[in-house]
Design a protein around this nucleic acid. Structure first.
Lengths: 155, 155
DNA sequence: TTACGTGCAAATACTTTGCAGTTCC
DNA sequence: GGAACTGCAAAGTATTTGCACGTAA
């Protein structure tokens, strides 16, 4: 859809600006990693990203992926998630804040957002004088599909 | 308070039962680790726990702490938390479910609980046919004290 | 007695860092 | 030309496992 294309363009601009502002250079590896990161479904582990990038450019090293993900995060393009100890990255530019459902069977991740929950959080924080600057709300369980599978195999 | 003492007694019973049911043995190291774990404020890292245990018994090894924490978790006495990548353990027997505020400055952790938030979670899950079996809700920011400190040093 | 528990050292997994050679500007 | 970038190998963390020895039941 058009929005995606536009978003990606904006993200590339942010990236360029970030590089310039920090006296950093462009490189083919970084471009390749950025491309894959922007084009791919979310919630990638470092290993996932490395595999995908290496399909195009087998010479890109794991180290560079780590380093580039750091930069993408610093530039506000990526966001790091810690799911039960697993580290993953998702796109974070111009994206509404959201949280995650994680299926324990297939690992699929579903995003959700609730203004009501955020408001309640804020109220509780006020009561104890806590100034919120971010949060992670991860809900674990079984997705619809895996529930069906489980039910089927039980018969 | 009385409730604490009673809880700890109950936890020791659960522990004993767990050992028996699984054909495991009592040991001085395990007892020492359990004691410290039960007596201490929550949210310990493995390293924290090791240090505390070694004050009493310098011969207890890190490996045993890891192994005992696994057992305590399996017995339902401990719960593992992943705070922004950091692994910590808290008591989990007879404790109401709760979530956490984490101060980014001093690292202090405050617990909270909200039936309303849980209910909203449940509603959202229903909408996408997701069967919740647990969640982690971590809120980051500054605690009252650290806000005051920050304000003071800004002058 | 015998299966379980322990600490150490080694192995694993994940991530960062030092370095020598390469590339961008 | 010089600073930044890269991949590799080495070094760090965090955690688990193999093993020979010790200990509870």
């Amino acid at each position: 859809m058009a929005a995606e294309v536009k978003d990606a363009r904006e993200e590339r601009e942010v990236w360029s600006a970030y590089l310039v502002q920090h006296g950093l250079k462009r490189s083919e590896q970084r471009e390749a990693i950025l491309e894959v990161f922007l084009r791919t479904e979310n919630h990638l582990s470092v290993e996932d990203l490395l595999q995908l990038v290496q399909k195009r450019r087998p010479d890109v090293g794991r180290t560079t992926v780590y380093r580039t993900l750091k930069l993408l995060s610093a530039a506000g393009l990526a966001r790091e998630l810690h799911l039960d100890g697993e580290t993953r990255f998702e796109r974070d530019w111009n994206r509404e804040h959201h949280d995650h459902f994680i299926c324990r069977a297939c690992g699929d991740i579903f995003e959700f957002k609730s203004d009501e929950i955020e408001k309640l959080q804020e109220e509780i924080a006020e009561r104890i004088g806590f100034a919120i600057d971010g949060h992670r709300h991860h809900i674990y369980g079984l997705c619809r599909r895996c529930q069906a599978k489980a039910a089927a195999s039980r018969r």
